[in-house]
């Protein structure tokens, strides 16, 4: 496997970061989050090297869903690190870092169906996969933030200031961040949907059934943005919609991956 050393380094560092962030949530001091962030930054760098090494070996990140998943994990971690520059989001790290380990492991350790190379995809295919990956990465971060929001909101509603509430970000901060992520991710995902439709239309077999599931994801985010603008939808409802949207997009990715692996 090209870049195997970088891959294992990234997995180990993401694992350490995830462990430290989770440890922080269950009792470690705040200094643990500095170590966690350092590990995550190093893991992010190792992951970049891994993607680079694979690229040099001809396995471009947008070759397939399998390759794109590796890029998705990298983008999600990058988006989290960037957000962490402006907001105190240690608790979110406890979701993002383990998710990065899971996604990257799935991408690299699932059986390789063979093939690869971007030749068969064409420009449209490559643009579609790139944008869809970037969009889903941002939605993944939004979903992590939304889960944290729901946990905290539940604790506050039950008048119980648990560890997550004590150590997480403020509810409104989380709500705003979920909204920002959706605002950024939605246009990217929209273009990915359009290019995906055009690309599929040109290919033999036309649109696949899972495209309708992608539409569910897109519709969920579209409805969320509209409802927020018109009826002021926010908070718990917005968090739930975000999770539904991301889950639909993730299922589509899963179906693609399963099909390619099974092929």
């Amino acid at each position: 496997m090209p870049g195997a050393a970088w891959f294992w380094a990234a997995i180990a560092l993401y694992g350490v970061a995830g462990g430290l962030y989770l440890g922080f949530l269950v009792g470690l001091k705040e200094s643990a989050t500095r170590a966690a962030r350092a590990a995550l930054v190093l893991g992010f760098a190792a992951h970049a090297c891994e993607i680079g090494a694979r690229g040099l070996a001809g396995l471009h990140p947008v070759t397939s869903v399998r390759e794109a998943l590796g890029l998705l994990a990298w983008l999600t971690v990058g988006a989290y690190l960037a957000a962490g520059l402006y907001w105190k989001l240690h608790a979110v790290g406890a979701f993002v870092a383990p998710a990065a380990v899971a996604i990257l492991s799935t991408a690299r350790l699932s059986p390789d169906p063979g093939g690869g190379g971007t030749e068969g995809l064409g420009v449209l295919g490559r643009v579609h996969i790139s944008l869809a990956t970037a969009g889903v990465a941002i939605f993944a971060l939004a979903a992590a933030l939304a889960v944290l929001y729901l946990v905290q909101e539940r604790q506050l509603k039950h008048k119980h200031l648990g560890r997550v509430v004590r150590k997480g970000a403020a509810l409104e901060t989380l709500d705003t961040l979920v909204h920002r992520c959706v605002q950024v991710g939605f246009p990217i995902f929209t273009v990915a949907m359009v290019t995906g439709a055009l690309w599929s239309a040109r290919r033999a077999g036309g649109l696949r059934p899972e495209y309708s599931l992608s539409m569910v994801a897109w519709a969920a985010f579209a409805a969320l943005l509209v409802a927020r603008m018109t009826a002021g939808w926010r908070g718990r409802k917005a968090a739930l919609m975000t999770i539904v949207g991301f889950a639909s997009a993730a299922v589509v990715l899963g179906i693609y991956l399963a099909r390619h692996v099974g092929a």
Binding site: Q152, L156, L161, V165, R166, A169, A170, L171, E172, T173
Partner: peptide
């Protein structure tokens, strides 16, 4: 950490909700 009377708990909760 954490308020020990009604007034400081009010501030703490407000911060948890609004930042």
């Amino acid at each position: 950490r954490g308020g020990a009377n009604v007034s400081s708990v009010a501030v703490e909760l407000a911060t948890r909700i609004f930042g």
